[in-house]
Nucleic acid binder design. Structure first.
Length: 275
DNA sequence: AGCCAGGACAAGT
DNA sequence: ACTTGTCATGGC
């Protein structure tokens, strides 16, 4: 069956691998020698970019259609979307400064669990905790890669079991989420379909899931582009630039606009103070 | 060395 | 319904 696996080259509009895979929406991708390496579902993928498009290494067509094209949401027309956003001055600045940020369609459980860990935490440490979580409780799929541990797997663990993660007060939140998801008390599958207010309420039945984490799970894990996570950086943007609310050109895709604004505003503070 | 981090929760107004 | 202190841990 490996005979069908080959390198697939695709032109994908508005996809910058570095910006998309390392802009604070997913936490497990690593770049080495221009190749991005990460796990989606049950296997690891290598992806790079050249002048002709994006190269997905050693995949077959079925796998590309069912996993990768979904993950990168390649059916969505980001060219039109960024043109639409450019009706607003600040958004135009953000999308011009950082073109190629796409919202990934991650698995709901991984997104939920990741953003529970993200609360009151910084991105480097979030990555470390998630890495230890996968190494400790995910499936070993070779080459030092591990799957993201299922809710069922985590549900029967104790806080002491999670101690090596050094997740702090978040450990009990992870366990409550795993328990409620694996038992079906919170049904992640239906969150992509039901009215978003109901989806928020459903997610917030979990201890440690407030408005921000719920919104992140919906945006990054359930394909709800109208979800609008407000963290400290977006809060600054809203008070500084949009005291009356977001412009109309973001209606229905506020979450995507949010990602551009987040990355833009955050880089104003971090990148310029090096030397 | 001290401040802050992609917040949530509980207790107190 | 709003404010405030607390929560683990460690990056910078």
């Amino acid at each position: 069956m490996d005979v069908k696996k080959r390198n697939i080259l695709k032109k994908i509009d508005c996809l910058d691998l570095g910006l998309t895979l390392d802009c604070g929406q997913a936490f497990r991708w690593k770049e080495r020698d221009g190749i991005w390496h990460g796990v989606i579902g049950k296997r690891a993928y290598d992806i790079s970019a050249d002048e002709n498009g994006i190269v997905f290494y050693a995949v077959d067509d079925e796998e590309f259609d069912s996993v990768l094209s979904v993950y990168f949401d390649i059916e969505r027309d980001y060219t039109s979307l960024t043109e639409l956003f450019s009706e607003d001055g600040n958004l135009k600045t953000a999308v011009t400064a950082y073109p190629g940020i796409r919202i990934l369609r991650q698995e709901p459980w991984e997104a939920l669990c990741s953003f529970i860990i993200s609360q009151n935490n910084n991105i480097p440490r979030i990555k470390g905790i998630i890495e230890r979580l996968c190494e400790s409780f995910g499936d070993d799929i070779g080459n030092g890669d591990y799957t993201f541990p299922s809710a069922e797997k985590l549900a029967c663990l104790s806080e002491e079991d999670l101690a090596p993660l050094r997740a702090g007060f978040r450990a009990k939140y992870i366990l409550d989420a795993a328990r409620k998801v694996s038992s079906g008390e919170v049904n992640l599958q239906k969150l992509s379909e039901i009215p978003i207010e109901e989806a928020r309420t459903e997610l917030m039945k979990i201890k440690g899931v407030g408005p921000k984490v719920a919104e992140c799970a919906l945006l990054y894990g359930c394909g709800r582009t109208e979800a609008f996570p407000v963290d400290v950086w977006v809060k600054r943007i809203m008070s500084e630039l949009y005291p009356e609310g977001l412009p109309e050109c973001t209606n229905g895709v506020q979450g995507i606009a949010q990602q551009y604004l987040f990355h833009w505003r955050r880089n104003l503070n971090t990148s310029d103070n090096d030397n």
